[in-house]
Lab assay of single mutants.
Amino acid sequence: DHWHVHIDGERIRLDGASEEFIRTLEELIRRGTDARELKEIIKEYLR
């Protein structure tokens, strides 16, 4: 599956992301997590 998110107007691909990770991201977004912080979390995950 190819997922991607838009954060700060930037399109970030989440290739190979699990549904669990996507749900976690959605939860963080709902909580109002800062965009820079979200991008860091995604970069760490994709390593």
Rank of each mutant, 00 (worst) to 15 (best):
E20I: 08
R31Y: 06
Y45C: 04
I42V: 09
K39M: 12
R23I: 11
D34P: 15
G16W: 09
E19W: 07
S18L: 05
V5K: 04
E37F: 15
G16K: 07
H2E: 14
G9D: 07
R23G: 05
E40C: 04
E10W: 02
F21T: 03
I22A: 04
H6R: 06
L28I: 07
L46A: 03
E44H: 09
R31Q: 14
T33M: 10
K39V: 09
E19T: 12
Y45T: 11
R31P: 01
D34E: 10
I41Y: 12
I42M: 03
H6G: 04
D8A: 08
L14D: 00
R31W: 06
G32P: 02
R31L: 14
K39D: 04
I29S: 03
E44D: 14
I29F: 05
T24K: 14
E10S: 05
L14A: 04
I41P: 00
V5I: 14
H6E: 14
H4F: 07
S18R: 05
G16T: 09
E20T: 09
E27V: 05
F21K: 01
R23D: 06
A35W: 08
L46V: 07
E19G: 11
K43T: 12
L14Y: 02
L14S: 01
E10C: 02
E19N: 11
D1P: 15
V5C: 03
R13K: 11
L28D: 01
H4N: 04
Y45G: 10
R11N: 15
E20W: 07
G16F: 12
E44G: 07
H2R: 10
L38A: 02
E20P: 04
R30W: 07
I42F: 02
G32K: 08
D1R: 06
D1T: 08
R36A: 14
E27I: 08
E10D: 08
G32F: 03
I12H: 04
D8Y: 00
E44W: 03
E40S: 09
I41W: 09
T24I: 11
T24E: 12
H6Q: 10
K39N: 07
L38V: 09
E20H: 11
V5T: 10
E26T: 09
T33P: 02
R30N: 11
H2P: 10
E19Q: 11
E27K: 07
S18A: 12
F21D: 02
D8H: 04
T33N: 04
L25Y: 02
A17N: 04
R13A: 15
S18T: 14
I41N: 01
E10P: 02
H4T: 04
I7R: 00
K43A: 15
D1L: 12
K39L: 15
H4V: 09
G32V: 03
R13Q: 14
L14R: 01
F21C: 01
V5A: 09
L14K: 01
D8N: 11
L38P: 00
L38I: 12
D34A: 09
R11M: 15
R36Q: 15
D8P: 02
E40H: 11
G16D: 07
K39A: 08
D15L: 06
K43H: 14
H6P: 03
S18K: 08
E19C: 08
A17F: 09
I42H: 00
E26R: 10
D8R: 03
W3T: 13
E37Y: 12
